[in-house]
Design a protein around this nucleic acid. Sequence first.
DNA 1: AATATTGATATGTTTTAACACATCATAGAA
DNA 2: TTCTATGATGTGTTAAAACATATCAATATT
Lengths: 103, 103
Amino acid sequence: MSYITDQILESLREARARKGFSQRELSARSGVPQSHISKIESGGVDLRVSSLIALARVLDLELFVAPKKSVPAIKSIIRSAKGHDEDEEQVTPAYSLDGDADE
Amino acid sequence: MSYITDQILESLREARARKGFSQRELSARSGVPQSHISKIESGGVDLRVSSLIALARVLDLELFVAPKKSVPAIKSIIRSAKGHDEDEEQVTPAYSLDGDADE
DNA sequence: AATATTGATATGTTTTAACACATCATAGAA
DNA sequence: TTCTATGATGTGTTAAAACATATCAATATT
């Protein structure tokens, strides 16, 4: 059903949303085609590690492995890192308002 | 040079050694061919996430992504989880001593 | 010396992710 | 409505992982 972990999938989706990137923008930044990103995010692809890392990089995420027993502690850290921001690269689309603004 | 992260590579190698598995044994348990494991551990292969997860499972590791900023904290957790054992599945080969011992 | 185990390599085949496209329906904005 | 951006989907091609299998040079082990 899903080659990849739910945790990873969710983190990818969530991080992209957090940054305000569209799939196309993430594609442009990571080099991974938008069509792939769509498939990846829907869990239908057994992607290669390099692709996953490429996406993670752009999203300010890092991929790694940890002993199963330390997973709960790690998840709690991740959870707490989630709220506080401090550094959130929101990218502010801020009204492109391009060209003629005759109105 | 290496498609995969050093952290991941090292964790894989280290976890296998810790368990006392040979590459062949890890192969039998994970379903990933020994020849692959060799390539993977030497960093010469851009493997698929499913393979990585398969290996990690057998080694009692878990793969995931975390925000870059929380990496230091996580690494320290992993480090501390490393020494204390408590649950170490050493597998003790303990002398196969099989069959005829006529000598 | 003979045997077994380890990790590293090699070859040939099959499978499939990654790619470049292009298209489509939906939803918002002009 | 028209235009644009989004995410999802499809097709054909190519590069490469995954596979089975076999071999090899070092170490152990007997």
